[in-house]
Amino acid sequence: MSNSTDDLAILPATSEPYQIVYEDDVLLVVNKPAQLLTVPGRHPQNQDCLIRRVQREFPFAEVVHRLDYDTSGLVILPLTKRVLSDISKQFQARTVQKHYVAVVEGKLAKAKGVIDLAIAADEQRRPLYKICPQQGKPSQTRYQLLSYNAGTNQSRVKLEPVTGRSHQLRVHMLALGHAMLGDTLYAPQAIAAKSPRLMLHAEYIRFVHPLSAQVMEFNAGAPF
């Protein structure tokens, strides 16, 4: 998912540090905290971000994919141009596997399935996105119910984006009738207010190491 939050909004950066999950000479895998941009925003006050923090320690780190400001979880950061190019091609070929964990309102009607709904920018409500069969880009998300809490009427779900559209997971779950807790962009206010953060975390990622050709797999449990 990419950063596509309002360019004019001030997004205060969390003081929570990122965590290094894996490190070698050519790449890092880090766990990004929620409420931190992956790259600098256009607003002058949105310069504190994951890549700038990482570059203080690893000056050659570069961004090959992003997580939204509100989303926490695993991010691959190449340290060389060759590795950047290779992993970028893996993302383009959709061979990088990743899944997220989210907490949503309500009980899912089906325990698993695929959401196949085209997504387009909502020109009337930027920076939001919407389901739009006419102008939207093809978008698919696999989902699986992990657990349901009848007391709170909330479901914990595993989400696997087949495509990587902006805000895809939030928009797709909303289209199913299950807004994410803490989602101040899309959820009704009562649901957004149920959590101080967006309940969405990039928990798992799998890719091939560009130099060793080894399959690399990483898990970072959701902090909620």
Rank of each mutant, 00 (worst) to 15 (best):
G41H: 09
L84D: 04
G41C: 07
L8Y: 12
D25K: 10
Q168A: 09
A187C: 07
P78D: 06
F58H: 11
Q134N: 11
I115A: 02
P138I: 09
R170W: 01
R94S: 04
L198W: 02
L77T: 01
I115S: 00
V215N: 00
E217G: 03
T141S: 10
R142Q: 15
M180C: 12
I76Y: 02
D122A: 04
I191Q: 03
I205G: 05
A61E: 04
A121F: 01
Q214L: 14
V103Y: 05
R142Y: 13
S88W: 01
K98S: 11
R206W: 01
K107A: 12
V208D: 07
V75H: 01
Q214D: 14
H178P: 09
Q189D: 11
V83P: 00
K107M: 11
V64P: 13
P17I: 02
I76T: 05
Y143W: 14
H43Q: 03
N219L: 15
D86I: 00
S85W: 00
A102S: 03
N219M: 13
K89I: 09
S155A: 14
K110R: 13
R56Y: 06
L181G: 01
L67C: 05
T80N: 03
R197A: 05
E16Y: 04
V64R: 07
S2F: 12
Q92L: 09
I87L: 14
H43C: 04
L67K: 06
Q47K: 15
L146I: 14
Q90P: 07
S2H: 13
L146R: 05
L128H: 11
S155K: 14
G151A: 12
L77I: 06
P78V: 08
D68K: 04
T71M: 01
R53M: 07
P40T: 00
A118K: 15
A213K: 13
R53N: 10
L74P: 14
S155V: 00
V208N: 06
R94N: 07
A179P: 15
